[in-house]
């Protein structure tokens, strides 16, 4: 077992994890963050995406011990019902959500993009979400949403 301390959605947290424990399972089980999903477990679907130091990573292939001293963000960081992030609003408005299973990961990849690039082109957007599969939407409305949000938000770390 190991103690890991990290920033989770802006708050300092600390917990004991097994050496072999994956960040995905630590978040789901120890922190009850169920928005992080396990669609495949081998880095091939993107539903487990989290931001580590503001860059998207697959939490299914990240040992929990690796985030010690780092910053971890999940979709909960973006906003809540009273105060949606412009990206979340844009996802709703554009119809970018169907079954919703890919949505948290998709939002995080988008958020990371907008942090680095306030005015991305469509091909930059497509590339930024190319590590997140969506079986429902065909991505078009997701790209639209990210484009719409780009003008509206400053995604500061």
């Amino acid at each position: 077992m190991k103690i890991v301390s990290f920033a989770l959605n802006g708050k300092k947290v600390s917990c004991e994890v097994q050496d072999r424990e994956l960040l995905l399972h630590a978040l789901r089980e120890r922190f009850s963050i169920k928005s992080v999903k396990e669609g495949c477990g081998i880095g091939e679907c993107g539903t487990c995406t989290v931001l580590i130091d503001n860059e998207p990573h697959y939490s299914c292939l990240t040992l929990a011990s690796k985030v010690d001293g780092h910053d971890v963000k999940t979709v909960e960081y973006l906003g809540d019902a009273g105060l949606l992030h412009p990206l979340q609003k844009a996802f709703i408005e554009a119809g970018a959500v169907q079954c919703g299973y890919c949505t948290p990961g998709m939002l995080l990849s988008a958020y990371s993009l907008l942090m680095k690039n306030e005015n991305p082109s469509d091909s930059e957007i497509r590339e930024a979400i190319s590590g997140n599969l969506c079986r429902c939407t065909g991505y078009i409305q997701i790209v639209e949403a990210i484009r719409d949000a780009a003008g509206l938000c400053k995604c500061k770390p």
Binding site: E76, A81, G100
Partner: peptide, 14 residues
């Protein structure tokens, strides 16, 4: 807008 979209962008659906 879809009635389930709000929950879904918040990562809340069960």
């Amino acid at each position: 807008n879809r009635i389930d979209a709000l929950d879904k962008v918040l990562g809340r659906p069960v």
